[in-house]
Amino acid sequence: MGRVTERRRVIRIRDGAVSTRPDTLVAEEPLEIRLGGKPLAITMRTPGDDFALAAGFLVSEGVLASAGDLANIVYCAGATDEGGSNSYNVVDVRLAEGVPVPDITLERNVYTTSSCGLCGKASLDAVRTTTRWPLDTSPETPVRIEPATLSALPDRLRSAQRVFERTGGLHAAALFTTDGELLDIREDVGRHNAVDKIVGRALQQGQLPLSSCVLMVSGRASFELVQKAVMAGIPVLAAVSAPSSLAVDLAVETGLTLVGFLRGASMNVYAGEHRLALSAAASTD
């Protein structure tokens, strides 16, 4: 099975001095996801939590909603070119009896990179029509979070990233309570993969929807990540960098609280500000 990190020879140049040394790199390998034996998607990911990744991917695609929808997930044997040992880079998801397979899922055989994942009108339409847990858009919603609590999340995310400290090459997604308690964290070369691993583990443990949680991600907040949060019933998504325009549009439309540029005590709230305990004197300019 692929490892999370690998060692490679590197020539290091520092202030004109040249040396040779081994360097620790984050591993990146393809994972093919099959549904009922039929190829569905290939994603570039960091090996580990592959079953959770596949389950989370199918939550975001509207196929799975609970652990009871899932019969099992297995690695497909003999996947190497030589036909000998198992590469552990192909998984097959079997749905429970009676769980329907949407036609759109099988019609779209896709390749997702570690940098972007899936995006586009087809995904936007899927969120509008198949999300099982519409987010509460009422100002009286019980989910509330203090800005000071949000401010502490990036440091907590970074301190919990074990592999990043050795490689500097991984994104992360973490699940927190509204009081800032860390519930789970996953790392991957792709932000969307890290989120899928978080959501997939929650599904396997019977915890969906994650309606009282905050999702914190490294990097930017893309449409893809907003989609995954909405499909998992997560009401708050925070990122250390910028959101895209489509991500903001989807957050506004679905009632998601979207926070970007979360760095220290500074942050931008792009949507769903009713969940933040803001001062009544806050400027609306």
Rank of each mutant, 00 (worst) to 15 (best):
G180S: 12
R45P: 00
T257C: 12
E6C: 02
A280P: 06
V91W: 06
V214A: 14
D69H: 10
I11Q: 13
G84C: 01
A79T: 15
R275S: 07
E146T: 14
L95A: 05
I73S: 01
A282E: 03
S19E: 11
G255N: 08
N109V: 12
G168R: 02
E28P: 00
K228V: 00
V90P: 00
S212V: 08
E6Y: 02
T46P: 01
A238W: 08
L170K: 07
A174I: 05
R158K: 10
L70T: 03
A242C: 07
G264M: 10
M44Y: 13
L157I: 04
E82M: 09
T80L: 14
G169F: 07
V90G: 01
N72T: 13
P139M: 11
S123H: 12
M267D: 01
R128Q: 12
S66T: 10
L258I: 06
D196A: 11
E107F: 08
D50F: 06
A152V: 00
D136Q: 06
C76V: 15
T43V: 12
I198G: 00
G16M: 12
Y270M: 14
A122K: 15
F164V: 01
A54K: 04
A172N: 02
Q204L: 13
R12I: 00
A232P: 03
A194P: 03
A239N: 09
S245L: 10
A265F: 08
S222N: 09
G190Y: 11
L64W: 00
M231W: 04
T105I: 14
S218W: 12
D125W: 13
N72F: 13
E97M: 10
S218V: 03
M216G: 00
R186S: 07
N72G: 07
R156I: 03
A65W: 02
M216P: 03
A52W: 08
V226C: 06
E165W: 11
